[in-house]
Design a protein around this nucleic acid. Structure first.
Lengths: 165, 165
DNA sequence: TTTGAATACCTTGATATCAAGGTATCTGGT
DNA sequence: ACCAGATACCTTGATATCAAGGTATTCAAA
């Protein structure tokens, strides 16, 4: 428990240079950032096997877990994935070009569309998500089940405090 | 403790659609991702006050906490910030254009440079980092000190397991 | 000394993202 | 029926990022 990791070294530097600042929160947030970066890099490798990346996987998975008939509007997808409309437009263009989704005009609302998984998209995401889950299991294997649950609860409370504001 | 957050809803959907998969790790990693997104957005607002963003703050802060004479090579900066050489080249171009850093040829190695904080850059980062620390204190205020320390330890162990590989 | 491998950094080309603004469509009040 | 405001989505322009490859310099072994 005495090992200095990368973040600890940063905090030590700040303490020397700016002893007026309380940098304890910086340690926590720094580790969240670094952890996110590491995790994304590993998961990217799995997605790449299926010709996907974070973005495309995100959209296909959102449609897939919705259940049959695997269809949502672009607005629904924007809300679920927390990206802007321009970003979603771009993601959908790529996925449509790849034949993984289909888009039809929403018969009930002339302004909108419905995006649905193609047969090919459904097959792909079903395979990819299984591999993804396996990768994730490996990534958390450094923690005991008990620790993972404890981490879950802390993250959940942290998020609750942030998202309420 | 019974509230379903966004991530819980996603897990519930997957359990219905793919009961064959163990999605517990997905919950943890999903929260890390979402937390990172929320935190970055808030911190960006503080950086913007000083005309900075994640990238530029990262470089200036790395130089600042190094201590006088606030100088590192691009390679050192790449290692500290975990970005590729192309990214660092771009960041340094922007910062140089803004007059926040200065670059001189390394007299000891004709291949390399030394990047140092300009007077303006030093003054700016000293102000910005104080504001940044205040923002971070606010961001973690949803957790008790005890919880924050507990989270720290879990994150540290998680990272240790990942970065060793 | 010479030369091949390693290193330091930059360039290029492709993606992903956002903010701001545009157009078409819907909705509710008059 | 009409119109104003809300909504759904796309477009534009600017940034940030990476992977792959290029050039100049250093280092180390023969």
């Amino acid at each position: 428990m005495c090992g200095m990791d990368h973040v600890d070294k940063i905090l030590t530097q700040w303490q020397r240079e700016r002893p007026d600042l309380d940098v304890a929160p910086m340690g926590t947030l720094g580790r969240v950032k670094r952890l996110h970066q590491c995790l994304m890099r590993r998961m990217d490798q799995t997605w790449a096997v299926y010709g996907l990346n974070d973005s495309s996987f995100d959209v296909l998975a959102t449609l897939r877990r919705e259940g049959a008939p695997y269809a949502l509007s672009p607005s629904d997808l924007m809300a679920s994935t927390m990206v802007t409309s321009g970003t979603m437009t771009h993601r959908l263009q790529q996925l449509e070009k790849a034949g993984l989704i289909e888009r039809v005009k929403n018969p009930a609302d002339g302004r909108g569309f419905l995006i649905s998984l193609s047969e090919k998209g459904l097959a792909l995401i079903d395979e990819a998500v299984a591999a993804h889950v396996a990768t994730q299991a490996e990534l958390v294997s450094g923690l005991s089940d008990e620790q993972r649950v404890q981490l879950d609860e802390l993250l959940k409370q942290f998020l609750a405090g942030l998202e309420s504001t």
